[in-house]
Design a protein around this nucleic acid. Structure first.
Lengths: 341, 341
DNA sequence: TTGTATGCGTTATCAA
DNA sequence: TTGATAACGCATACAA
């Protein structure tokens, strides 16, 4: 089981030593049943002895197939994207694909560079997060016949397939839950809408529901901040420190919601007695928090799996990718209640 | 700016239309200064018009260089690995490399398969998490002249370069901090040592410090559990529910520590008055929690950057990778105090 | 079941 | 500064 030479072997060498053609060795590895048991044995023994590992580069080059899929997420530090990424990867791995993950860090420039790199790598498909980007990127992918799918955002444009849930409707529903409890003055903490169309859609849903309930939108109760616990905490402190603080906070992601929860408790505002808090994403931690945090469950795993599956089918069977809207759902927990008085 | 044909172009086509050789086009793209301004202009115009994107597969095949680096982490759902992954990626991206991320999900079998896939892809380097694995994998990488580096675990074997910190010493120091506060009965919650050498080293550090302080090791106060908030909470409930509960809990990761914190509070055990809790990893959230959670700061970012840099230098300049021990440091916060009475 | 021959798109070497 | 040409390792269509 020790290797003959210290150099990595090639198909050609294996073939020479086995006394067969390179085609036979190739077949022995790719479609073992198409080779006689005897020659197969001989070849596989040599493969093991040489520790031969086929060159996927050469193979991909020859066959024009790479088995690569690219995934663009803003960050994986937010665990909801991490969970999403893992579900995509699990599915692709099962389908024999490899995943190239790229962080765009909420930067359009970086995203554009990365898409070019993905095209260079001749990925067979691309999964985007959010739909707002330069149309040139979509055109580039189409030109190279690379199927793509948008996740985390529904796309208005029917030519851009999206497998996602409706951020606007989900945020609207979360806001409605608070209003139905009797809240009339509600604060909002969310990501930076300038670089994040999910945040932008969630704000819009929040405003729409306020409007539907004939409540005024007060910009002093709104904070757009980076996705960090500390930012959520700081935003909550600021909002709760205003002259007329709200009786409820809608945090458009759970990371900031947890920061807000901690901050309110530190300020001596009991949750939900003094202030209700509802988050967004349904991270595992929300279930365990004190009090358990109401939130909006997003179908991160289902979305990742569906996107991966759709892409694989598009590549393998040329099946066009259909847009799909998955369900997001308000999860009521003890962090929300009717306002006092 | 519209493309001539609907087919992706190749170097050859660009060359033909520009009236130059393929070599010149290749040079115009790779080393623009080595081509006259005039022909360069002409070529770049055609490149833009055709939306030509070079085929990295063919280029890599011809040059025997892929620019790929493989990273194996057990999971990215734990945000400490996510942060680590991002630091690796940032550094590699800056060095013009691409990152192939693979989740091993704490499975040795899966890891082995993935290493083979990485070799197939002819990655130029591999970053491992933890050092405990079949030596055949290391041999395979050496045979293919692929440099690798272990992170998150110091390696006993000098032939296996590790850029990490000392889990044993860090866990020992955390335990010592509790003992010095006066705790004599300390519980431990950590990951599954059977599949996780970091957990195993941290347990060992915990036991070593108990022994150094002449304290008995009580297995009923130890819980090995998957890395989940809920698991941390359940473990804390179990341990605090025993006949003689400990006065302090050492949680070998912050995720479980947060779960434990929430569980203790729910049980009516005030932290740190009734029970002290110290975590491990220094996640951003620990700083914001109520009370702020004492923890062990791990150099996740520094480790990721150092590993990436070392690998790049190994590839570019053949520089062998030196093992390095980075610092981990106990962070005292309000979740720990002297025991009552 | 096996072998032969061709080509995949680029880089790199050498010569002009 | 540019061109001609030989690799690079494998898959595959076709022939035997």
């Amino acid at each position: 089981m020790t290797d003959e030479t210290s150099q990595p072997a090639t198909l050609r060498q294996i073939a020479r030593e086995a006394g067969v053609s390179v085609a036979t060795v190739s077949r022995a590895l790719r479609r073992p049943e198409s080779v006689s048991a005897q020659t197969r044995e001989r070849i596989l023994a040599l493969v093991a002895r040489h520790r031969y590992v086929p060159d996927a580069l050469a193979a991909g080059f020859a066959s024009r197939r790479t088995g690569l899929v690219g995934l663009m997420v803003p960050t994986i530090s937010n665990s909801i994207y991490a969970a999403f990424t893992e579900s995509v990867q699990g599915r692709l791995q099962a389908a024999g694909r490899k995943l190239l993950i790229a962080n765009t860090n909420y930067s359009a420039t970086l995203e554009s560079e990365i898409v070019h790199k993905l095209v260079e790598s001749r990925v067979e498909g691309v999964i985007f997060t959010g739909c707002r980007r330069d149309g040139v990127l979509y055109e580039l992918l189409r030109h190279y016949r690379i199927p793509f799918v948008v996740t985390w955002s529904t796309s208005g444009d029917p030519s851009i397939p999206a497998i996602s849930f409706d951020n606007f409707a989900a945020a609207k529903a979360a806001t409605k839950t608070l209003i139905q409890l009797g809240h009339r003055r509600i604060g909002l903490i969310c990501g930076l809408s300038a670089v994040n169309d999910r945040a932008q859609q969630r704000i819009a849903g929040f405003r729409a529901e306020l409007e539907a309930a004939a409540l005024a939108f007060d910009p002093t109760l709104v904070a757009e901040r980076p996705f960090e616990v500390a930012e959520g905490a700081a935003a909550a402190e600021a909002i709760m420190g205003t002259a007329r603080p709200p009786t409820a906070l809608f945090c458009a992601n759970d990371i900031q919601a947890l920061g807000a929860l901690f901050a309110c408790q530190r300020l001596g505002r009991a949750v939900p007695r003094d202030v209700s808090i509802i988050g967004f994403d349904d991270l595992p931690m929300t279930r365990i928090a004190n009090p358990p945090l109401a939130t909006v469950h997003v179908p991160a795993q289902e979305m990742g799996e569906a996107a991966a599956d759709a892409l694989v089918r598009a590549v393998d069977m040329g099946e066009p990718i259909q847009s799909r809207a998955l369900d997001a759902k308000v999860i009521t927990r003890d962090s929300i209640a009717a306002p006092r008085g």
